[in-house]
């Protein structure tokens, strides 16, 4: 495998990791606050549709992004209503959101655009186009560093850079701010937060909302940056892989980055069977690579690679008692 192939492989790793990373961080906020969110996938899907649809109609991708975030946020609030206010089962609520999104997006797409459940292809300002970082042209001819900068680091859409910037930001919020302290506490022991005189419900809604915003960006990235338009079921289970990555990352922001990059690499390899064949000498089915994130999550959960301890109060509605 030559250097350029490696750079190309890593480049598509970054592209494929971005939606996973955003969704993983979304799940991180929600689950760290004690609300399990299996509906990441549905939220991404809804956001993907609404951002593509509004971008197609208005021709402005930023309006599309806002619409995507709004759609995802609405589903987040629904999840919050079911699982925080009405203390329902968080898994069931999440599954319901996934089904709702899968059905509604296609239905509305058909009703609005009559293109078989798709949105029209997005062009120009209706898409997030690659950004060329400064000096990419000048550095490109340089050996080694040139392709690394021009191909791998430069030339992504703004959302990719936002996603990567979200990692240190998430870390900072979680571990350096009052909000982060309370958020982590409410996922571990809501009674401690409650007796300290802080609203458990308020904190959990805040977390669920942040989750909605990040999922919205992830969905918008799918339909307006990674691809040019919405197609049926385009989230393709990424929400679930993001959940797997979250467990893999032991609910920590920096680990989430590495986990989603690793899963992104599997995704990239899936599209380049020739590279694997060249590397290990045997042909590997692409589907096998697609299953790897799940296999690795099972291994992690079984405790082979250190312990993955979920937030202690995760999945359980908070009922005041002593």
């Amino acid at each position: 495998m030559d250097y350029l192939t490696l750079i190309q492989l890593l480049d598509s790793t970054v592209r494929l990791a971005t939606p996973l990373l955003l969704a993983c961080l979304a799940g991180l906020f929600s689950e760290r606050a004690g609300i399990f969110d299996i509906g990441l996938d549905g939220k991404m899907l809804a956001a993907a549709f609404f951002s593509a649809a509004i971008a197609a109609i208005t021709g402005n991708v930023w309006l599309g992004l806002l619409a995507g975030i709004a759609a995802s946020l609405a589903l987040s609030l629904l999840h919050g209503l079911a699982s925080i206010t009405f203390r329902g089962n968080q898994l069931i609520s999440g599954v319901a959101i996934n089904f709702l999104a899968a059905g509604l997006t296609v239905l509305i797409a058909q009703s609005w655009f009559q293109q078989g459940g798709r949105t029209p292809s997005l062009i120009g300002g209706a898409r997030f186009n690659p950004i060329t970082l400064p000096f990419a042209g000048q550095i490109e001819p340089m050996p080694f560093i040139g392709p690394l900068y021009a191909e791998l680091i430069s030339g992504h859409s703004i959302l990719v850079y936002m996603a990567f910037a979200a990692v240190p930001l998430t870390w900072w919020i979680l571990y350096r701010t009052r909000f982060g302290l309370r958020l982590r506490a409410v996922g571990e022991n809501p009674a401690a937060v409650d007796t300290a005189g802080v609203s458990v419900i308020g904190l959990r809604y805040a977390a669920v909302c942040i989750c909605g915003v990040l999922c919205g960006v992830a969905g918008a990235y799918l339909s307006t940056a990674l691809q040019a338009g919405f197609i049926k079921d385009m989230s393709a289970g990424r929400g679930y892989i993001a959940l797997a990555a979250l467990i893999f990352a032991k609910w920590r922001p920096w680990y989430a980055l590495w986990a989603t990059l690793l899963f992104g690499l599997f995704g990239a390899l899936e599209t380049r069977p020739d590279v694997i064949e060249a590397l290990i000498g045997i042909k590997v089915q692409g589907q096998l690579l697609g299953a790897l994130p799940y296999v690795m999550t099972v291994i992690i959960l079984a405790g082979f690679v250190g312990k993955a301890i979920p937030p202690r109060a995760g999945g359980e509605p908070y009922v005041k008692e002593r």
Partner: peptide, 8 residues
């Protein structure tokens, strides 16, 4: 039953 966050 103490109201403490165990891993804090």
């Amino acid at each position: 039953h103490f109201k403490l966050v165990e891993n804090f």
